[in-house]
Simulated scan of single mutants.
Amino acid sequence: MSTKISEIKPIEYSCKGKIITFNAPLIMGIVNITPDSFYDGGKYSTVKDVLNDVEEKIKQGAHIIDIGAASTRPNAIELSDTEEWERLKENLNEIRKTFPNTLISVDTYRASIAKQSAEYGADIINDIGGGNLDKNMFATVAELDLPYVLMHIQGTPQTMQINPHYQNVLQEIKSNFELKIELLAKLNFKKIILDPGFGFGKTLENNYTLLKGIDQFSNLGFPILAGISRKAMINKVIGTNPVTALNGTTVLNTIALLNGAQLLRVHDVSEAKQAIELTEFYKNA
């Protein structure tokens, strides 16, 4: 006798007394407190500006606020850990105090920043390095016992778009995930969210192969994040730029949802919420 989808228990992760449940797609709202991010760099001049933006994203339907203090766009200038933390700590502290019930993710590939962020109230660690860029990251997230976004990257932010190459991009990323899931399991850690890393060491064709086959990661048993918002994989196809890529973002977010993504990381929360509502209604028709 087959099991109905409605009978499958959704994945739930605890994070400091809060619960994140993947029974329907969720939205992670991006808050980049950086001067050089590819789309919204330099958006905020004060902590108050950050708080206003966070409040607006929550009102629009963001389930998670993802705050990043170091740009990881291609060829981004690498900050020291001290510079990253100095930029992050006051904003994180104020967001935590102002929005005590909101899930806060910190976008960092440094174990030291992850640990300090947890002390300041972060609920989730979002690591674009997937453990590659700091050998202490896996041990740190296991110790913290917070949900962890494990992203795939080939190379580093400074090198990732210099001739990325795969024999089979889906299989190679899946194998990489399997290896890292096993390493984390040895540390008794299973609060993992998988992110295939659109644009991080991938060609345009690689990105669309991943989008088309994202459901192949589902049988690994963890939620899948799609971070497509306003990226070059949109602009290179339809001739837009990060500022004019909202419609393209919504189209690809919709495809990702239909193909099994359970978490959208976006700059534009209202439009992501609409995409989720429509695709959920469509799937249940």
Rank of each mutant, 00 (worst) to 15 (best):
M1Q: 10
S2D: 10
K4I: 11
K4S: 12
E7N: 12
P10V: 15
C15L: 15
I20M: 04
N23F: 15
P25G: 03
I27L: 11
I27Y: 07
M28W: 08
G29R: 12
V31R: 10
N32K: 13
I33E: 03
I33W: 06
P35D: 01
D36S: 08
F38P: 07
D40N: 08
S45I: 11
D49K: 01
L51P: 02
D53H: 10
E56M: 13
K57A: 02
A69N: 04
A70W: 03
A70R: 01
A76K: 12
A76D: 05
A76Y: 11
D81A: 06
E83H: 05
E86I: 06
K89F: 12
N91V: 08
N91S: 09
T98K: 14
T98C: 14
L103M: 10
L103E: 00
I104S: 02
I104E: 01
T108S: 08
T108W: 07
A111Y: 00
S112N: 08
I113S: 03
A114G: 00
Q116V: 09
A118I: 02
Y120K: 03
I124T: 01
N126A: 06
N126H: 14
G130M: 01
K135P: 05
N136H: 12
T140N: 00
V141P: 00
A142E: 02
L144C: 09
P147C: 15
Y148T: 06
M151I: 12
P157R: 09
I162T: 01
I162R: 10
P164G: 04
Q167D: 13
N168D: 13
Q171T: 14
S175H: 15
I181C: 10
E182T: 14
N188F: 15
N188I: 12
N188G: 07
G197I: 02
G201I: 13
L204F: 09
N207P: 08
Y208G: 00
Y208R: 01
L210F: 12
K212N: 03
Q216P: 00
Q216H: 11
N219F: 15
L225I: 06
A226T: 01
M233R: 11
G239M: 09
G239C: 05
P242T: 11
P242G: 08
V243M: 10
G248E: 05
T250Q: 04
V251H: 09
L252T: 07
N253D: 12
T254V: 13
T254D: 04
T254C: 08
I255W: 10
A256R: 06
A256Y: 09
L258H: 09
G260Q: 02
H267N: 03
D268G: 04
A272M: 08
A272L: 06
Q274N: 04
A275E: 02
E277I: 10
T279S: 11
E280G: 00
F281N: 04
F281K: 12
K283Y: 08
